[in-house]
Amino acid sequence: MQLALVAAVVVGTSAPLVGTFLVQKRLSLMGDGIGHVAFAGVAAGLLTGVWPIWTALLAAIGAACAIEWLRSRGGAAGDLALAVFFYAGLAGGVVLTGLGGSLDGGILTYLFGSILTVTPGDAVTIAVLGALTATVVAQLWRALFSVVLDEESARVAGLPVDGLNLALATLTSVIVVASMRVVGVLLVAALMVLPVGTAQRVARSFRGTLLAASVVGGGSAVAGLVAARLWGLAPGGTIVLVASGVFLVAVVARRRSGPLEGMRAP
């Protein structure tokens, strides 16, 4: 349980840091798309006997770079690019899983998460990936914010916009892979964006949104894990349901207390 708590805290606090930027760029489903390609990577790892985390990371980073390249060149709209990788990744995972025999517990732990079976090695891997994500965001968040605020102005100002977008896509891959054992690839995007939706309704600044989203994410992950343990529920799903509930509470509370989101003062 202690290892599971460590994994939950790390993933819950670091996933929304990346999700905050994805939400503003209208790429909330990017985690989903990359997660499905990571699933194919896991299947390839299990089939070939290579550590699935490595194959998943390789596949996820490759997909993230390709999605960003397609999006930036205008060759395919952002959502269409995501759809291509979403379905191709899932299909690839299904085919590779079939080649390996059939669906078994190994692949299912990556699809739906299996935080209660996290090993010390898994916890260290998750902690390293989470720390890497948090460190990069802490160092680059102002530059990333400038790109999110107005990409065209950022280019005029001389920011390495393509490089920063690629960095964000890579961070997304890293956090998807780190989150696989906690909530599974099917739900990882939820942990990246739901806490952000909550934070946007209470924070007064972008930095505040980042911090609040991280706190909400971490709190949801711990509360979900404890609840799952108490009532014998699936941990991954419970964590996401808690995050969803917190989001709904924030929406209702915001509507009752003040102007709706997006309404401006006269």
């Binding site: 999110v148 605020l149 065209e152 946007q200 600044s205 972008f206 989101e261």
Partner: peptide
């Protein structure tokens, strides 16, 4: 061209 509901302060 600016994101309409960006959660950012004027100072930021």
């Amino acid at each position: 061209e600016i994101v309409e509901d960006l959660p950012a302060s004027v100072r930021e």
